[in-house]
Design a protein around this nucleic acid. Sequence first.
DNA 1: CAGGTTTTATACTAATCAGTAAAAAACATG
DNA 2: CATGTTTTTTACTGATTAGTATAAAACCTG
Lengths: 199, 199
Amino acid sequence: MKQDSKHPGGRPKSFDRETVLDAAVRVFWEKGYEGTSLDDLTQAMGINRPSLYATFGKKHDLFLAAIDRYSAVQGMAQSAPLREEPDIKLAIAGYYREIVRTVSSDGTPRGCLIGSVATEVAERDPIVREKIAGNLGRAEQVLDQRLSESGFDTGRPSGAMILSAGLSLAQRARLGSSTEDLTAIAQGYVDHFFPDPVT
Amino acid sequence: MKQDSKHPGGRPKSFDRETVLDAAVRVFWEKGYEGTSLDDLTQAMGINRPSLYATFGKKHDLFLAAIDRYSAVQGMAQSAPLREEPDIKLAIAGYYREIVRTVSSDGTPRGCLIGSVATEVAERDPIVREKIAGNLGRAEQVLDQRLSESGFDTGRPSGAMILSAGLSLAQRARLGSSTEDLTAIAQGYVDHFFPDPVT
DNA sequence: CAGGTTTTATACTAATCAGTAAAAAACATG
DNA sequence: CATGTTTTTTACTGATTAGTATAAAACCTG
């Protein structure tokens, strides 16, 4: 169907790598790692088994690629307010707004692939553990830097607290909280971390 | 081996229900639900398969029983400081101390069976979802009541925030944070939620 | 110690699992 | 249109899965 301009000969691939990887993200996100079978994956991705192995390697490799893909897409969306909104309180509010949208959107599983699925697996999978520990560490750094640029060097609130509150939103989403509830809880966090001065 | 005083006849059970249930808790805690096989369970529990089915039902029933057992044991330990310590700041500090002990203790898996394993499963298992949503809701109520008794009716901090911070400690533990790191982070939460008045 | 009852141990089932072998199909190049 | 190269399709593998049938073993009561 589509293809890079140069083709070395041979039958062209019938699928786009990122498209089918997004489908795999979706399946792992919903069913977890052990809960996802290769039949689940091939059916959702619309490709057959040898194509999957040729493109992504074995199931564990595909899971790592799915984590990377998810991190790239969601990380970009969630950090946008931190880069674009000058007011720190509004920036964090936008950050939480993006999180709430991601973790409670119709059409995608509830919760967070990193915070729920990958973290659960991390106990028995050192590769996954180190990968997402790095991912979350970098997310924390982004928050810390934004906070320090806004004059919150004292570390109150810290990036770790902002991040943990965001992960708790994902956790609540997976347990069934509605978008409205999550939005209200997020607003509570924002007001708590950045209280308006008494008038 | 042990038995209730009245025995209706028949071969006595060779194991204690709570003892083998604790072993099942341990396995699910480490390996997750789908990641745990019945061979894993029977080996860890020291009983064979028909005994397991006769006592606990199928795998899903056993998982529910494991959640109840874990909630009872850990809930009692973690709420003890809330019941016994008069000073609210020290009470929350003790609450976090118990959490850190549970989620980063040697000899048990890292993290939280509820916050990590059961929450991950909740997306595709409504029974588990409602069960642990209720458990965490009750934990939040306990915190809210203790806070209101200590004069924090304004809802700052709220029980939800205290609980979410505690769950984040479990999450960090599963990602590899040491007991010392977790203790320091917990202290940061306590200082943040209950700042000392400026001298 | 015989009869009744419950739990144990062993072995089995059909289904599903992750991963691969082999051949057919679809392309670029000559 | 023949050749070489890559992907797709189909089918298969041995291992593992959750759950159960059957029979032996261990107990209490009479």
